[in-house]
Computed example of a mutant assay.
Amino acid sequence: MSNRRIPRSRRAVGAIALLVSAVVVAVLGLVVSTVTVLVVATVYAVAAGGVAGRLLSNEIAQVRRDWAHDRAVLADEHRKVAVVRSREHIAFADQMSQRISLRDAQIANLRDALVTAEIELAQARERFSAERARRAALEADVTSARSDLESARVDLLAAQEALAASEAAEIQVRTELQAWQEAATEDGNGAQDRKLA
């Protein structure tokens, strides 16, 4: 509310002047103390008091109207401020609602990405387990192949030894056969020599 100083109006000054003049006339009437002067002074004082009362009541009504107008202006200013604040509040609420909606969408996207990542992780774990099982199977195959290779190597060495023994036996048999043939040839030549002789 405005703290303006209300200046004295002409009505208030006129009412005060009338009241002062009525007091002066009443004092003069008392000083003169004649019936006519007292009647005139009384009539004047009553008339001046009535006019002064009317002026003061008009002044009070005007002051009340001014105060009511000031209050109305102040209420209108408060209403305008409230409307502006309400609009700002609505705009802020809309902005926050949009931010919340955007944040909710981001959270939903992150949840979807998390679910996708978890699925991919589970698939990667399954592939890793399958590769581990495959590796174990391959290692078992390698171990089996090494065992088979070692067994084949042993069999090859045994075969080489058997071949060497067979070759040695063949050489021995050939040697014996050759010796026998030579002996037989010599026996045959000796018999022929004896026959010829």
Rank of each mutant, 00 (worst) to 15 (best):
A41S: 12
R10G: 07
E77A: 11
E176M: 06
E186D: 14
H89Y: 01
R87H: 07
R103L: 12
V154G: 13
E161C: 03
P7W: 03
A197P: 00
A15P: 01
W67L: 15
W180R: 15
R65Y: 01
A15K: 01
M96F: 04
A136I: 08
R125Y: 06
I100Q: 05
G188H: 11
Y44F: 15
A82Y: 06
R153M: 10
A22M: 02
P7E: 12
I100S: 00
N189M: 11
A191Q: 12
G49V: 07
S144H: 08
E77Y: 05
V40N: 02
R10D: 09
A168W: 04
W180P: 00
S129N: 13
K80P: 00
V81Q: 15
S86P: 03
G53Y: 03
K195L: 10
L177W: 02
V142K: 15
A105R: 10
R5E: 14
E150P: 01
I107E: 05
L18C: 15
D141G: 06
S9D: 01
L196F: 07
S101P: 01
D70H: 08
E186I: 11
A117M: 03
P7V: 10
Q95T: 02
S9G: 04
R111C: 14
A82Q: 02
L19R: 10
L157P: 04
E167A: 11
R85Q: 02
D66S: 07
V37M: 12
V142Y: 15
L74S: 12
Y44E: 07
L110G: 02
V40Y: 02
H78N: 06
I16L: 10
W180S: 15
R4G: 06
I171K: 14
E167C: 09
A162I: 11
A159P: 03
R153G: 10
A133S: 03
E182S: 15
E182C: 06
L55P: 00
V37L: 10
A162D: 15
E161I: 11
L177V: 02
A184D: 09
R153W: 05
R85V: 01
E118Q: 13
I107K: 10
A15M: 03
W67D: 12
